Amino acid sequence: MSCSRRSFIRGIGGAILVTYPVHRFLAGTLSRQTIVIDNVRYGMLHDETRCIGCKACVVACHNINNVPAGVTRVDIVDNGTWQDQGKTQKQFARKSCQHCDNPPCVEVCPTGASYKDAKTGIVDVDANRCVGCRYCLAACPYHVRFIHPVTKTADKCNFCRDTNLAKGRLPACVAVCPTKALTFGNLDDPDSEIAKAIAGRTVYRSKIHLGTAPKLYHIPGKFGEIPQ
């Protein structure tokens, strides 16, 4: 494939991409917990009542997955400051790939670079097939994809599929979280930690009216509106 072809396709598929700056916070030592990858449907749960906005997850993701400065696979969004019993409280929400069961990014990809892994349910990008056309960026209703500044291909969270998961470890963000605000596991296993957590709490998923069936769940915070 010539560079001119790639430039042409990238140009006609242009979409506005908003990226969020990475704030460098000190991160703890990553956990060595192990998991098994084989014929499961992975999902994640973010507990907004536990998240303190430290962004250790963002730093860990950058370090483990070699994400360049200026772009990020995961961000923690400030959802407002509130008064609770005379004390000021802040609330935060996670912004990252939803790993949809019905991912629109996969449907629009002209080369098959965007795909959903049949064994894990993880939505991923094959950089060798991606031409940087940005169709997937435009199609994603969660606005969590970006063009990698080095490879010039689409990139996003893949649950550390080719780094930590490949070594039998939890995703970097989950392992490093100091307040245990993140839970990761097999949604189809009723005995898994994430399945039990979802079943026992009030949770929400973003933009489910679109039929994307996202696998990123949230335990809502105490204040304000649920972020969309």
Rank of each mutant, 00 (worst) to 15 (best):
Arg41Lys: 13
Gly43Asn: 05
Met44Cys: 06
Asp47Phe: 00
Arg50Ala: 07
Arg50Phe: 04
Arg50Met: 08
Cys51Asn: 03
Gly53Met: 11
Gly53Asn: 08
Gly53Asp: 10
Gly53Gln: 07
Gly53Phe: 07
Lys55Thr: 15
Ala56Asn: 05
Cys57Phe: 05
Val58Lys: 02
Cys61Pro: 14
Asn66Asp: 15
Gly70Met: 08
Arg73Phe: 04
Val74Cys: 00
Val74Thr: 15
Val74Gln: 06
Asp75Ile: 07
Asp75Pro: 01
Ile76Phe: 01
Val77Thr: 12
Val77Ile: 15
Asp78Gln: 12
Asn79Ser: 13
Gly80Leu: 03
Thr81Val: 09
Thr81Phe: 00
Gln83Phe: 05
Asp84Ala: 11
Thr88Asn: 11
Thr88His: 01
Lys90Ile: 10
Lys90Trp: 04
Gln91Glu: 15
Gln91Ser: 10
Phe92Ala: 08
Ala93Thr: 14
Arg94Ile: 12
Ser96Cys: 12
His99Lys: 10
Asn102Lys: 05
Val106Met: 08
Val106Leu: 01
Val106Glu: 14
Val108Lys: 01
Cys109Glu: 09
Pro110Ala: 04
Thr111Asn: 09
Gly112Glu: 02
Ala113Tyr: 05
Ser114Pro: 03
Ser114Leu: 11
Ala118Ile: 07
Lys119Trp: 00
Lys119Phe: 03
Thr120Lys: 02
Thr120Asn: 05
Gly121Lys: 09
Gly121Asn: 12
Ile122Arg: 01
Ile122Cys: 00
Val123Gly: 03
Val123Gln: 02
Asp124Leu: 01
Asp124Phe: 01
Val125Leu: 00
Val125His: 03
Asp126Tyr: 00
Asn128Lys: 12
Arg129Thr: 11
Cys130His: 03
Cys130Val: 05
Val131Ile: 15
Gly132Gln: 07
Cys133Pro: 15
Cys133Asn: 06
Arg134Phe: 01
Tyr135Thr: 12
Leu137Ser: 12
Leu137Arg: 00
Ala138Ser: 14
Tyr142Trp: 07
Arg145Tyr: 09
Phe146Gln: 10
Phe146Thr: 13
